[in-house]
Design a protein around this nucleic acid. Sequence first.
DNA 1: TTGAAAGCGCTAACAG
DNA 2: CTGTTAGCGCTTTCAA
Lengths: 353, 353
Amino acid sequence: MTTTGQRTVAETARHPANRYGNRPTMKDVAARAGVGLKTVSRVVNGEPGVTPDTERRVQDAIDALGFRRNDSARVLRKGRTASIGLVLEDLADPFYGPLSRAVEEVAREHGALLINGSSAEDPEREQELVLALCARRVDGLVVIPAGDDHRYLEPEIAAGVATVFVDRPAGGIDADVVLSDSFGGARDGVRHLLDHGHHRVGFIGDQPRIHTAAERLRGYRAAMEDAGIATEDRWISLGVTDPVRVAEAAEAMLTGQDPVTAIFAGNNRVTVTVVRVLAEFPREVALVGFDDFELADLLRPGVTVVAQDAARLGRTAAERLFQRLEGAPYATERIDLPTRLIQRGSGELPPSV
Amino acid sequence: MTTTGQRTVAETARHPANRYGNRPTMKDVAARAGVGLKTVSRVVNGEPGVTPDTERRVQDAIDALGFRRNDSARVLRKGRTASIGLVLEDLADPFYGPLSRAVEEVAREHGALLINGSSAEDPEREQELVLALCARRVDGLVVIPAGDDHRYLEPEIAAGVATVFVDRPAGGIDADVVLSDSFGGARDGVRHLLDHGHHRVGFIGDQPRIHTAAERLRGYRAAMEDAGIATEDRWISLGVTDPVRVAEAAEAMLTGQDPVTAIFAGNNRVTVTVVRVLAEFPREVALVGFDDFELADLLRPGVTVVAQDAARLGRTAAERLFQRLEGAPYATERIDLPTRLIQRGSGELPPSV
DNA sequence: TTGAAAGCGCTAACAG
DNA sequence: CTGTTAGCGCTTTCAA
């Protein structure tokens, strides 16, 4: 601790004790500057109607005391917190990094802060988090839902908390949602494999209670059906996407009778695990994954993917949120963002058996 | 909008207008339940001293009105916000995902929410963000600094905002800091290359004003010196780590007279760019990178790295923060976390010229 | 067991 | 241009 630091402590310690570690308030500043409370407020908020001289006296007092406006009090009075909440599945998932960054960027453009939390794909934890954010009176909420029943949000939305869902739709309530075209993307990806001569195509996806997982499975089935292929149950594996289960699933469908010659992976984690399995596998197997991921182009072969634009997803949702916050109450809307097939080699391999 | 939803609107609309979208307050609940304000407060906060019967009446009123406690007001009164701020460089950077997730997890264990923002490596923006968080009266702050002068934080720290720096030390103030051993890690990585027969080893790093970048450079120089090799300026490139500059730097040191036979890359972004360059390069070049990254093991050759544990960095910092928040004022501390060399092939290649 | 009153630090509304 | 007053919705204190 420097000497300067210690003097600061002594200085602030002169003020009457309160719960904020003896911080000076506008009242203290007013007393020191010899002006009224409201004048301090004017200076702090850059409102007009203060003589340069007065302003300087107030500013000096602010600097001397180390005053910083207490936004908690301000919020209480103004009713707007200038903050929005973001609830997602897992901040550590590379898919959500760009998404939350995009939301943050838009929030920043609107002078708002971002409070965020991970639901860990647990509906209860999602609700807990959302309600905690509502209790803080965030102005709005961007939610990547873990659960499928969001009726608990009804009173909040009715009370004016703008809410936009991303990546998966809300359950049981009418709300804005921004989605990638999971169905179309998966269908295109599987069709791409079929176009390259495959007939036995496997699908490894997440738990079907997750909307995107169900949609992608639907896309897979649609593509197979369009091609007149009867899918076998052995080719389809759904469940949690931890590496162990996914690796076992991949190995199972790659071996035995009538093994698959191509795999469609339902999300980035699945894709990566399948790549690991295939790296050890004796036969060449074609692969298309849903979600792009870093370095997919550097692997050999490069991994063909159905890419969705996570940043755009986040930006679109956040912009929608602030439109609602600022404007008239529009009708709720569903925004579908297109996916894009990126060919890198793995999806263009021919059947090896 | 369901019928239930509309009734909720009508219901809340009866309450006197305020700034929170006509939300019921404890006063409203008290009126409806026919009890005093304080009794509602007791029920809401689970305080003892309320008859089961009264409690039920209050609870019914709460449910009927859709009441949710306004934590802004609570905060104003209690002085603690139960939230901490995290300022990092870029939420979208894969290195920070696990770190912020770890911080969030610890916050959650302590019942606190996480407010975070990206500084975009801009000192002004860092300060702006930090002060905005202080104005919100976050209880504490975890900062990955972009700037190197943090004296602006002195009054805040004196006023009781617990602050822990991560990844890089604070400038101009005395504060806790949690670091990876950049110097030792880089020295070990370079030494590893030297041990495999290299003499001309290149170093591509970030701007030396960034503490970790400077430390890693120092580690590189120490290893070279220990081996009795005089480094040439041509082998060293420092600056912003955008792909274009890094690629040019790599190509420059790989060609011309006395080209390097091995490269040490100063962070994950640099490493990835160098991998791309080497993939196109006619000669085999050894590579060790600072920071681990996903799929490094799947590339051919696998990329040898000096790994730091981002999650542990975040967890350690956050735990330190809450120790401070809860306990006596310890002396500030510097915590160094070890790095780990992970051999995957690229760092074990012999010199090719 | 319950409630009335005071006040957290700020801003809105209205005087001077 | 400046200051005073009255809350924002909650918790604290203290009395019933």
